[in-house]
Design a protein around this nucleic acid. Structure first.
Length: 159
DNA sequence: ATTCTTACA
DNA sequence: TGTAAGAA
């Protein structure tokens, strides 16, 4: 069976070589919420092929566009996940990702969506986050129309 | 050999 | 960002 771009099959050392980052830098990005790793049974980080693209985007933002880690995190933090998933009014009104989030939704502990068994590393909000930086600009200007927002994300993520 | 966590420059 | 320690 073919593995898809989200399957966790790459060790941190291999990933570091592929993208030209140090292992410690990748761990730092994860600690700071820029990337999510899967863990093997033995606790070792495993990454996907899509994560390679994600790290390349992060590198571009930092090296060429003048962002730092916190700057990227703040951009991610304002993605309107409540409209994109979407979740009910009752749910969002009790969710820290909607109320006062200074962190990306995938860093929020006990969010409703993650309690339902969803993995953030597979979620469209997370995947869109640093894979499509131009799309974020478009997304944030498309206020009001949630269907339009979802279309933007789905189009950006289709293979 | 490789990666883990924690701590520190 | 990188390095170091001790454990797995």
């Amino acid at each position: 069976m073919n593995n898809n771009s989200l399957d966790p099959v790459i060790s941190i050392g291999t990933l570091a070589k592929k993208v030209g980052l140090s292992v410690s830098a990748i761990r730092k990005y994860e600690e700071q919420g820029l990337i999510i790793s899967h863990r093997s049974a033995s606790g070792h980080r495993l990454f996907s092929y899509e994560d390679i693209e994600r790290l390349r985007t992060i590198q571009h933002l930092i090296r060429n566009l003048g962002f730092n880690i916190e700057g990227i995190r703040r951009i991610e933090a304002i993605l309107p996940c409540w409209d994109l998933l979407p979740c009910s009014e009752e749910v969002r009104n009790n969710c820290l990702a909607f109320k006062g989030s200074t962190k990306p939704c995938w860093m929020i502990k006990d969010a409703h969506c993650t309690r339902q068994g969803n993995e953030c590393r597979k979620c469209h909000v997370y995947r869109f986050g640093t894979l499509h930086t131009e799309g974020i600009k478009v997304l944030l200007h498309s206020t009001g129309d949630n269907n339009k927002k979802r279309k933007i994300i789905n189009k950006a993520l289709e293979d």
